[in-house]
Design a protein around this nucleic acid. Structure first.
Lengths: 221, 221
DNA sequence: TGTACATCAGTGAACGCGCGTTCACTGATGTAC
DNA sequence: TGTACATCAGTGAACGCGCGTTCACTGATGTAC
């Protein structure tokens, strides 16, 4: 019997149940936050007994790690699949990804859990995201605020000697700086927006985001 | 017997113990995060029994609320006492405040606890912070990126009709927009830095912060 | 095609834990005459 | 200054809870001959 897709029927079943567990985990995180995540509660919702989940995840921490992995991966996938893939497109992909599920955004970019250290393969995905954006950022013409022909700032010269994070990326320091600015400005709007610091302020955060993006991409008179 | 400072000896004692409780609470938050905060653990550290704390805080939520209040208040105080009080000074006060105790920063600007709603007096302090920065931002000459004489963007026109959050503040829409940019860009660097997303990247986040601030305040060639 | 065996998903009972919170109480501190 | 009473900080026992996790087990599914 040729098993479709991947592996034996048992393996497929395992993957299916694992997926269902993480699905319920995401629901729970969305409603009560990551710190309230409980294996027993998930099992109950699935109509199973608590210990059953230990067939699929070695511990609660293991499940959380998987969720963090999924979160990073979903952003990486979304960015890779971005239509056109210019900086504006990537920025909106980032925003859509964040707004779709704020708790997922916070699991990655929010308050860190003291003492928790992500395993290596997760930091690898994170680096992949960075590299993808660096590629897009340095291979496209970026006017104005990100223009490479302004005089190098002190931070630029600092970056020249502190850029090992960019690995073997060919981007010049100016491009690294431009990327960092791109990244921090977008997160500035996003994190305050999603944390609710604009609620009651009555303006539309999406327009503020668009305005910041615009300032990054187009020259001003 | 004239009680020094405020109130009767008993009242002073109460205030003292309350302060000690919050001090231990901050220690606990700094090491294990806000979600791990426990009344019993605090009591144990103080050499008291758990239920004793209920003389001082009605519930765990009550204590957390007090901590949030203290966090906001400490930032408001720091900003008010800022020397010179120009925008650059305020920005560095904000950064120092954040870096001093990242978990305190996250308690206010980090991942929100789903379902938690801050009481009115806290949102009042928050508004005070906004207003103080708006004052500083609109009463001082701000060149370049924050210059008021560029053509109004779509977001500017949006702000003209959606500015009720600024209350009776006399700032023109341009000044509100400038303030928001100031606020979001600084938080962009801060939140990513404190969440550890620059660790391993080897450059100095303080310089990136300074560079962003510089771009906000000085015209480029 | 049928039988014997191995694999493995899921159960139910149990463990120890620390949590928030209540309650009736003791004993010290302050107040009124 | 001394006595009678009220206030109130702190204790210890107790409640119910849900958590993560272990363990010995049942029963279904897959594998080998």
């Amino acid at each position: 019997m040729a098993p479709t897709g991947a592996g034996t029927p048992r393996e497929r079943y395992r993957a299916q149940v694992r997926a269902e567990i993480t699905r319920h985990a995401w629901e729970q995180i969305a409603t009560a936050g990551a710190s309230a995540l409980s294996l027993n509660a998930i099992a109950k919702r699935m109509g199973m007994s608590g210990p059953a989940l230990y067939r699929y995840f070695a511990s609660r921490d293991d499940l959380i790690t998987e969720l963090v992995r999924e979160a990073y991966q979903s952003l990486a996938d979304a960015l890779r699949a971005a239509p056109g893939a210019d900086l504006a497109g990537l920025a909106h992909v980032l925003r859509d990804w964040a707004v779709t599920d704020p708790q997922r955004y916070f699991l990655v970019y929010g308050t860190p859990i003291p003492g928790y250290h992500a395993p290596d393969d997760i930091t690898a995905i994170s680096s992949e995201i960075m590299r993808a954006l660096l590629d897009a950022g340095s291979s496209l013409p970026v006017p104005d605020a990100l223009s490479p022909d302004t005089a190098p700032t002190p931070f630029d010269t600092h970056l020249e000697t502190h850029r090992k994070w960019a690995g073997d990326h060919p981007a010049p320091p100016g491009a690294l700086h431009r990327f960092l600015i791109f990244w921090t400005r977008l997160h500035g709007v996003l994190s305050l927006e999603l944390a609710g610091h604009f609620t009651g302020m009555d303006f539309d955060p999406a327009l503020l985001f668009a305005a910041e993006l615009d300032r990054l991409l187009t020259p001003r008179p």
